[in-house]
Design a protein around this nucleic acid. Structure first.
Length: 491
RNA sequence: CGGGGUGUAGCGUAGCCUGGUAUCGCGCCACAUUUGGGAUGUGGAGGCCGUAGGUUCGAAUCCUGCCACCCCGACCA
């Protein structure tokens, strides 16, 4: 393993890229902007999926799958939706290749041009609502509560591993309701599901809020979001939940007959989180030694490293190591016994630190002698000698402690980087010298928001849901404002 | 799309100015000694130097075109 050390404090961006590669999470593919998610990275994503999927099902949703390709005409039906996505769509125009008779090269067969171009989905509202038209006739067909796990493509100018890739993996929920209230309740419920997942599983504290008009999803009436703060003081949008009103129902003519026999348009929501959460996870907890994974997401929660010199030592050590492995597995803990005899213990220590394994247990001849083990935790790097008899009840507890500790650490970091600004100078000073979230007054206009963005590169991350009303003056225009909103520079 | 970079073994690189088919490290294979914080030695395998053309007796090196990817911005989950 050839690890080029880049310090987090010196070049956050290079540190992040190195970490993603060195920890074996993902690498650049030969396709621009697209990455290969490696087994270790994918294992983490699978754990995220499992946790989310369980929560979706607990809240009454089912999974389904819709096509990757969307006829172009579907896109033109919801005006603001097209406008939002048109400039980043991959388009399929042909369906066949052939050998060019002169050059003998494989070329697109010009005769195989599609009658209507197909868009590679950047999101599936259109094709799903086109389908819902035939599924929904009566109030009895509502609500429709579906989710799909899928890949989508957005042809972004600039990409970053996990944070913004041309193709990415996500889930998108699409629900249909009889009333606006019910749809709004669904939107908020899913936001809560995301926030719960982020805080309790990813161990990343988030702020729940609504987006300003500028930042709203293309085609939504209201966009709710969860926003996290990364270690470099930049914000990251970690999930969104949209109240779509009747926009898509009208665009795709999806109506239902009420109990009273009238015809009404259906109300919609959509909500999603993506592999960007991998980026959030990495950027929230990791350090110069590598990844730090919350135990609830770690593919390997405990690694056991046997240490020995002589063959007879190996036998004794391995016997204990195997017994402890079995013991912990019985507790439902994911344990790896690293019995590779061609790597030194020191190498393994460093490797599992790089990969963020929460707990490391080392067993050597000394431990066999004393009926002990050495237990090291990744988050604090503390080591302790533990009696082997205590493993069974102390390790599960330790894992919980680590989960709590890294959440608390991230929460403390966020609290320390949460500022209020009352003047433009204060605002700029915080952005330039401190970074983090800034709570400030804004006159509520899109125009001012854009001007602030131009001048400062900071955007309104959200209007927090628990915001209290407070009279004040816009930091830029001085016009009256009724509440503070949350600004930050963001990914 | 603007700006900056890079393409040489699986990875990271030297060589390029001053042409003579390639350096070093990691990794890989074999054997031996090792193993409580990234082991050591010996031997070995692995490269049409991104691509197309040009100059030349001869091109990784000089010239021209092309391609790809990365990084920084604008755009976005």
């Amino acid at each position: 393993m050839d690890i080029k050390k880049v310090k987090r404090s010196e070049d956050y961006s290079a540190w992040y890229n190195n970490l993603v590669k060195n920890a074996d999470l993902a690498e650049h593919s030969d396709v621009k902007g697209c990455m290969v998610i490696k087994p270790y990275g994918y294992a983490i994503w699978e754990k995220m999926q499992a946790e989310l999927d369980r929560r979706f099902k607990e809240t009454g949703h089912q999974n389904a799958y819709f096509p990757l390709f969307i006829p172009k005409s579907f896109f033109t039906k919801e005006a603001s939706h097209v406008e939002g996505f048109a400039k980043e769509c991959a388009v399929v125009t042909h369906y066949r290749l052939k050998v060019d008779e002169i050059t003998k090269e494989i070329v697109v067969d010009p005769e195989a041009k599609l009658e209507e171009e197909l868009i590679v989905r950047p999101t599936s509202e259109t094709i799903i609502w086109n389908t819902y038209r035939s599924w929904i006739q009566s109030y009895r067909d509502l609500p429709v509560l579906l989710n799909q796990w899928a890949n989508v493509v957005r042809w972004e100018m600039r990409t970053r591993l996990f944070l913004r890739t041309t193709e990415f993996l996500w889930q998108e929920g699409h629900t249909a309701h009889a009333t606006a209230d019910e749809a709004i309740a669904e939107t908020k419920q899913m936001l809560d599901v995301y926030a719960d997942f982020a805080e309790n599983i990813l161990a990343v504290p988030v702020i729940k809020g609504v987006k300003s008009e500028n930042e709203r999803f293309a085609g939504a009436i209201e966009t709710y979001c969860i926003e996290g703060l990364m270690q470099d003081g930049k914000a990251l949008q970690m999930g969104t939940s949209h109240f779509l009103g009747q926009n898509f129902a009208k665009a795709f003519d999806v109506k239902y007959v009420t109990k009273e026999n009238s015809r009404e348009y259906v109300w919609a929501t959509s909500w999603g989180v993506s592999t960007r959460l991998m980026g959030a996870l990495i950027m929230s907890h990791s350090d110069d030694e590598g990844l730090i994974l919350p135990p609830r997401l770690a593919p390997i929660q405990v690694v056991i490293i046997p240490i020995f010199r002589k063959p007879e030592e190996k036998i004794a050590v391995m016997e204990k190591a195997e017994a402890y492995t079995a013991l912990l597995k019985k507790q439902g803990i994911s344990v790896k016994l690293d019995d590779r005899d061609y790597q030194s213990p020191g190498f393994k220590f460093a490797e599992y630190e790089l990969k963020g394994v929460p707990v490391r247990i080392a067993i050597g001849p000394r431990d066999v002698q004393n009926e002990t083990v050495e237990v090291a935790r990744r988050d604090t790097k503390e080591k302790q000698v533990m009696s082997a008899a205590d493993l069974e009840h102390k390790i599960p507890h330790l894992l919980e402690q680590i989960q709590t500790n890294i959440y608390q650490r991230a929460l403390d970091f966020r609290s320390e980087n949460m500022y209020a600004a009352d003047t433009w100078d204060e605002f700029m000073d915080i952005l330039e010298n401190k970074a983090g979230f800034i709570s400030a007054h804004w006159d509520g206009t899109a125009e001012t928001e854009l001007k602030i963005k131009d001048l400062s590169k900071a955007t309104i991350r959200c209007i927090p849901l628990n915001n209290h009303k407070e009279a004040g003056k816009c930091i830029l225009t001085g016009k009256p404002s009724t509440q503070r909103v949350l600004f930050a520079r963001a990914y």
